[in-house]
């Protein structure tokens, strides 16, 4: 075992320990502590946006700007892939 492996295993197990502690300390499964923002959305989504699907109304209305960002990311990836596989000589 090289020095790298020892360091890796050690730090990895520390991180793992804290992650699993975190998983145990978070709120119990299926019972979120605080739901103010989402309840607000669930109550108002239909009248404010006219859509039955609350998720869609979040995606395109309340957090529409995120969706623009998401579309931009896809655009970026396509541009990047096409650019990477371009022809190099004119």
């Amino acid at each position: 075992m090289s020095r790298r492996d020892i360091a890796a295993v050690l730090s990895f197990s520390i991180v793992a320990m804290f992650f699993i502690f975190g998983a145990l300390m978070i709120h119990p499964f299926g019972a979120p502590d605080e739901t103010g923002m989402d309840d607000n959305i669930i109550t108002n989504a239909q009248t404010e946006t006219g859509a039955n699907n609350a998720v869609t109304s979040v995606v395109f209305d309340y957090r529409g700007f995120d969706t623009l960002g998401e579309a931009t990311i896809l655009f970026t990836a396509v541009a990047a892939v096409i650019m990477i596989f371009r022809r190099l000589n004119k």
């Binding site: 989402d38 109304s57 979040v58 995606v59 957090r63 995120d66 960002g69 998401e70």
Partner: peptide
């Protein structure tokens, strides 16, 4: 169920 995390996950 809460809708916001679902929207975030889509993104």
């Amino acid at each position: 169920a809460l809708p916001v995390p679902q929207a975030l996950t889509l993104t």
